[in-house]
Nucleic acid binder design. Structure first.
Lengths: 345, 345
DNA sequence: AACCAAAATGAGCACGTGAACATTTGACAA
DNA sequence: TTGTCAAATGTTCACGTGCTCATTTTGGTT
């Protein structure tokens, strides 16, 4: 059993005291070596390191954290990791965490029913975290009245501002404002909007951005077409739009704004299937820039969110010292490809 | 500052002792209430709960864990979260974790250079985790010689078996074995294989599965076509295949096995662009079943991995009591749609 | 009222570490 | 040799909790 010298007691790794005993020094010297502090002779350091090696020493996290320091970890509660946007945000958070040598402690809430922020916060706070980020996809039932756990900075990923927590999200509203203006500037005053599902917050803000922008430009909005984010739903709406275009008349649309790229893809397929050309007959724009590498010859003009930026800001707000409460909307950038034609003049 | 009664000292939440003092009971009684132990009068419990509420008590994780219990968390080290497969695996792990009331502590390794298992393990072990799962996308340089941290069960997500750790992965080899046999059974003895990039382990196993299966069936393998997972690379290979088909002759392919769905999509687009019909002229199969909702009228016959199953098994191996070391390959299932034609007879 | 068992509560130790402070060692100059 | 000072090392305390064991209280029975 010599090879098993690492194991002491019931599976727990050796303590600093045992290392100290083996190395013939005091426990404090071991601590100094572990934490790379100065004022240790090279000879002593070597002896301690050898003892650590022999015993398979693993500094006890609890003992270290107990003293009152930070856990160097932030909590993240996600509702649905699978959603493309959430994933990129997660990546941004992870990247920021790595730069600060933080870990990310994740818990997932049951995917079926919408969770309350209070539940998420309660489950998270019993973990070793220095702050927390709560993702809110659908509307949390207790959003307004939610009170964050005292002493743990809490950031909510949400378009809605919160009275007691900093909120961060990509500017969903601004995204459609930007795209609508873009289409208007290219002469498309008669456009159709293919929306996402009604229960999605993003979807609602995207729709509002479109509608308000048209209103500000004094352009009448045609009835919105309801999709469900999927390419097939986009295709179905695309068929309707194709019929409108083919029917002609002054109300015939010249452009389509789809609330995500998949639906835009469906719209394009339906239009082309009906013998129409994109962008010669109809211009189409999407949102998300999610088709990269996924579709051959991707040429969709779309909008890219700075999701890593969102993740980074969320992380920094969660560990930040500032106690100010902000509502941050991160802007997005237009990605011009070739599905929009300029029809002015 | 009455509303700030929650905050004591420098941002730390109140201790059980302070709660005890306020409630006029012993600290041990507070502990009993917190942990829901029996033998506490209802009246006492109420008083303690009230005191906890007033002070905003948060049980100190370190203090509790110090006693030697479990952290109720497993570590996960990921190389690249963005990859579709990794995401689904993560989801499986999260789901299993939730069922056991575990959290998942994630760290990400720098996305640019391949990481060593030793690095990942070292960074992970200083966190409060009861076990760890290491993801290995490319070949880790130290795979063979890696020795897991003593006392922390370590699971590697890898197709290769490891001498000292349990390994788990979707059966990449078996996936192409299954699909190749499927095509052979449908009369396609002349098929082309569009591979993924050379540095990907999955890619290598998928290619080997295809090649070996053809060998066992005594069918000559045509030269493999090298893609890079992207739809555009699939399109490029599809153009070459189309040329071969149109050239005719006994060596003209009747089917294509693409190592992922995106490339299959590209192949189909190229074939159809060349005036060929799928599946009437050429059959095409992909792998991953990744196009759901993403593409209108998805009809690609493909293979679905049980990635959640992989995640679940990995989690359970990481917290399991059994010290046996296994190499688990989780099988996948065929998803028949309509891009393969039976040309027997 | 007296007694007893069971339930409720309290006291003290142990966990492994970091930090402040105390002590020893070693080098060098007078 | 002796004194001095800095570097190296050791000692002690504190952190907040769970557990074991001791003590007190409660409720019921004789």
């Amino acid at each position: 059993m010599e090879g098993m010298a690492q194991q002491t007691r019931n599976g727990h790794s050796a303590s600093a005291a045992e290392v100290a005993a083996l190395a013939g020094v005091s426990r404090q010297t071991v601590s100094r070596v572990v934490n790379g502090m100065p004022n240790v002779t090279e000879k002593t350091r070597k002896r301690v390191l050898a003892a650590m090696e022999e015993l398979g020493f693993r500094p006890n996290f609890a003992g270290a954290a107990l003293h009152g320091g930070s856990y160097r970890s932030i909590g993240l509660c996600m509702y649905n990791i699978t959603r493309v946007g959430n994933l990129a945000t997660l990546e941004g958070i992870m990247q920021a965490a790595r730069e600060h040598d933080f870990a990310v402690t994740m818990i997932e809430m049951g995917g079926d029913k919408p969770y309350t922020l209070a539940d998420a916060s309660r489950r998270m706070v019993e973990r070793p975290v220095d702050g927390m980020i709560l993702n809110m996809n659908r509307m949390a039932p207790d959003f307004e009245e939610f009170v964050p756990q005292p002493g743990v900075r809490t950031v909510i990923l949400s378009m809605y501002a919160h009275p007691r927590c900093t909120t961060i999200d990509s500017d969903q509203y601004g995204s459609c404002e930007l795209l609508t203006n873009y289409l208007l500037e290219h002469g498309h005053s008669n456009m159709r909007f293919v929306a996402g599902p009604e229960n999605s917050i993003s979807s609602r803000f995207r729709e509002a951005g479109w509608r308000d922008t048209l209103g500000r430009a004094h352009v009448d909005a045609a009835p919105m077409l309801r999709g469900d984010w999927s390419a097939d739903s986009g295709y179905a709406m695309g068929e309707r739009i194709a019929a409108e275009v083919l029917a002609g008349g002054s109300q015939a649309p010249t452009a389509v704004l789809a609330a995500n790229d998949q639906m835009a893809l469906g719209v394009i397929a339906a239009l082309e299937n009906a013998g129409l050309s994109v962008p010669d007959d109809v211009s189409v724009v999407g949102i998300d820039d999610a088709l990269e590498g996924l579709v051959p010859h991707n040429r969709l003009t779309t909008l890219r969110f700075d999701l890593r930026g969102v993740g980074k800001l969320a992380f920094e707000a969660a560990i930040g010292e500032s106690s100010s409460i902000e509502a941050i909307h991160v802007p997005s950038t237009l990605v011009e490809r070739s599905t929009v034609r300029d029809i002015r003049g």
